[in-house]
Amino acid sequence: MTTDVFMAGFGGQGILLAGNLLAYAAIEQGLNASFFPAYGVEKRGGAANCTVIVTDGDVGSPVVGNPGQVLLFNQLSLDKFYPRVRKGGLCLINSSLAKIPEGEQRDDIDALLLPATDMAVEAGDARLVNMVMLGAFIARCEVVPMTAVKSALAGVLPERNHRFLPMNYAALDAGAARA
């Protein structure tokens, strides 16, 4: 069983942290996983995306042409990647910043629109958008249990940021509640 997850948005939305977290949680669960970030020359504000493969077999290709699970964080990534979601796949869209253009609605995929940035602001910080999206994704697609994601977060976040853990947990739960 292999689950491929693609996440895209802009730098600063915590895309790479979310991907990293998902893969790490899977490995802690005894599964195999790869986290492959696409990176730009600039560190902030550019496009950011990553692919996470979770499998009970060998991770093969770290990239996927038509991913089955897709998290889209902004309009730019929606325009580019919405059409590439695999038929029958799942697509989470941050409806605070992105909307599906008129007439391009797909009925061959399961799309979930979530005002993730607004929900993040409600939870205390717009930067929690990654946790809201990831929480909703975990609730929809139980590739790893939510408890594993939460315990992995402590491993991924540097010690000095552990005081932010409760906020992040709350954001994960808020996302899950809306899934």
Partner: peptide, 9 residues
């Protein structure tokens, strides 16, 4: 850059 930047077990 793929095998250099990828993270896995």
């Amino acid at each position: 850059a793929v095998v250099g930047q990828i993270k896995e077990a």
